[in-house]
Design a protein around this nucleic acid. Structure first.
Length: 423
DNA sequence: TCTGGGGTCCTAGGACCC
DNA sequence: TCTGGGGTCCTAGGACCC
C-alpha cells in the first residue's frame, strides 16, 4: 500500500477575503473583521496585519485603525458559510477524497498522485477563479506535517507560490528546524512554555523527543503530534464528520444584564438554537448544562460565575422540554446583584436516536411529560444542597464561589421517574 | 478494638483548535 | 462603556461499591 500523503488547503485571511469578494474596490485597502458585538478582531487581511494583533479588543485599537486607513467590518457568518461551501465544492471536484476540517480549511488525500505540486497549483487557481478566495496548500505524509507545510507556504508565499510540498525528507527537516515549536498544530501557549523550558524549541526538537516520555509527562495527544512530525501518520482522513458529542450555544450579551427576565430570554433562545443543531444531527441529549457569568476583563467589576448540570427526565430533542429545564437551571444559579455579561447552554451526553432503547423511559415519554416536568421541579429543589468552595480560576484569587453539587444518584431519580411514569 | 484498598464511574476543568 | 463562539480530548480526583 502506498504511503499516505495529505494536503492541507487553507483560505488566506478567510473572513477578510470573503468581504473583499463583494467589495473588489477594497482589494488594496487593509481590512479587519470583528467578532459578535464588534468585540474583537477575528480576521485581518495581509496588509492589515502590521496594525493589529489577532483577538485585540476593537475599542482599544479603533483610533489606530482609523489613522492607518484600516476598515473594520462586523462579521457575517451566513455569508462566510455560504462561500465556504462553494470553496469546498470546488476542491472536492479536484481530489479523490476531502475532509472539511473547519470553515476555511480542508485536508485532501493526495496518496499516489505523481505531480502533487501541479495539483496544488491547480486547486489554488480554480478556487480563486470560481470563488474569489485565495488559498495556500501544504503537502506532506501526515496531517500535522501538512499543517506545518501550509504554514510555510503562507510564510514564504512569494518564494513557493503558495504551495509547499515537504514529502522530501531533506526539505521536511529544513522546515522543521526553521519553525519554533509553538507553530506546531497541537502545541498551544501552555505546552509551548513547558516544551521550551525543557529545551524543545523548534518543531525539529519535538520530532526528536522521546515519545514515551512525552506521553508520561503530558498526554497521548502530544505524543501523537511528535510521531506525526517524524512522518508517522497517526491521524487519518475523516471524510464524514462524526456526530458532535457536545453542543454548545453561548454568547456575550453586548451589554450588562442585572435582572433574571432578560437573561431568561437569552437562555431560552440559546437553548432553542442548540436544540436545532441537536435535531439536525439526529441526536438526543440526556443532560444539559446552563451557566452564567459576569464580565472577565474589568478589574473593578465584581466577578461571579456559576453553572449547573441537570439530567433530563428522559433523553430528548424536544425544544420545549429542554428550554424549560434550562430555565429551571437558571433559576437555581441566578443570584441578584451582579452585572451579567454572558450565558451558555451545553447539551451533553448526546447519542444517536435509537441508541437509547435500553433506557427505561423511552417508553413513558409522551404520557408522562407533565408529571415528569413537575418531578423536575423537585429535582431542581435538591440542587440547593452541597457545600461552597472557592472556584479554581487561574490568576484571579477570590474569583466567585462555586456551589459543589451533590446531585441525587441516577438510580434514585430513575426509580422515582419510573413511578411517575405509571409503572 | 481494630477501621482497607482497588476498581470504576462521573464531573470539572485544563489545554488545544479555528 | 466596549473584550467571540463554537468545539474536542484528556486527566485528576471525588464518589461509590464491594
Amino acid at each position: 500500500m502506498a504511503e499516505p500523503v495529505f494536503a492541507l488547503i487553507d483560505c488566506n485571511s478567510f473572513y477578510a477575503s470573503c468581504e473583499r469578494v463583494f467589495r473588489p474596490d477594497l482589494l488594496r485597502v487593509p481590512i479587519v473583521v470583528l467578532s459578535n458585538n464588534d468585540g474583537c478582531v477575528i480576521a485581518r487581511s495581509a496588509d492589515a496585519k502590521p496594525f493589529v494583533k489577532m483577538g485585540e479588543p476593537y475599542h482599544q485599537i479603533r483610533g489606530k485603525l482609523e489613522r492607518n486607513g484600516v476598515l473594520a467590518f462586523s462579521s457575517n457568518y451566513a455569508l462566510y458559510g455560504d462561500i465556504s461551501e462553494r470553496v469546498m465544492t470546488v476542491i472536492e471536484s479536484l481530489v479523490p477524497a476531502l475532509e472539511v476540517y473547519s470553515i476555511d480549511e480542508a485536508f485532501a488525500d493526495m496518496t499516489g498522485i505523481d505531480n502533487r505540486d501541479k495539483l496544488g497549483r491547480e486547486i489554488r487557481a480554480k478556487v480563486l477563479k470560481l470563488t474569489g478566495i485565495p488559498t495556500c496548500v501544504g503537502i506532506a505524509q501526515t496531517k500535522t506535517l501538512a499543517k506545518l507545510a501550509n504554514h510555510g507556504a503562507k510564510k514564504w508565499q512569494k518564494h513557493y507560490g503558495g504551495v509547499m510540498d515537504i514529502c522530501d525528507p531533506e526539505r521536511r527537516d529544513k522546515l522543521l528546524k526553521a519553525l519554533p515549536v509553538g507553530e506546531v498544530w497541537g502545541v498551544g501557549r501552555r505546552m509551548n512554555e513547558h516544551l521550551t523550558a525543557m529545551g524543545i524549541k523548534t518543531a525539529w526538537d519535538l520530532a526528536q523527543a522521546d515519545a514515551w516520555t512525552l506521553r508520561k509527562q503530558f498526554s497521548v495527544v502530544i505524543e501523537k503530534t511528535a510521531r506525526e512530525l517524524r512522518g508517522v501518520s497517526c491521524l487519518a482522513l475523516e471524510e464524514t464528520a462524526p456526530a458532535k458529542q457536545e453542543i454548545c450555544s453561548s454568547r456575550a450579551f453586548g451589554h450588562r444584564l442585572h435582572e433574571m427576565e432578560p437573561i431568561k430570554e437569552a437562555v431560552a433562545t440559546y437553548a432553542a438554537r442548540a436544540c436545532e443543531k441537536l435535531r439536525a444531527q439526529g441526536s438526543l441529549c440526556k443532560r444539559i448544562r446552563v451557566a452564567i457569568r459576569t464580565g472577565m476583563f474589568n478589574p473593578d467589576e465584581a466577578k461571579f460565575a456559576k453553572g449547573i448540570v441537570c439530567e433530563l427526565p428522559y433523553p430528548s430533542d424536544d425544544t420545549r422540554l429542554i428550554v424549560r429545564a434550562a430555565l429551571k437551571g437558571l433559576e437555581a444559579i441566578f443570584r441578584p446583584g451582579h452585572a451579567y455579561a454572558k450565558a451558555e447552554i451545553m447539551l451533553l451526553d448526546l447519542r444517536q436516536q435509537g441508541e437509547f432503547t435500553d433506557d427505561l423511559f423511552a417508553e413513558v415519554q409522551p404520557a408522562a411529560a407533565e408529571k415528569v416536568m413537575s418531578l423536575l421541579d423537585e429535582i431542581n429543589g435538591r440542587w440547593g444542597r452541597g457545600t461552597l468552595r472557592p472556584a479554581r480560576v487561574p490568576g484571579t484569587p477570590g474569583w466567585g464561589m462555586k456551589r459543589e453539587l451533590k446531585s441525587p444518584s441516577y438510580s434514585t431519580k430513575w426509580d422515582e421517574l419510573w413511578r411517575v411514569g405509571g409503572r
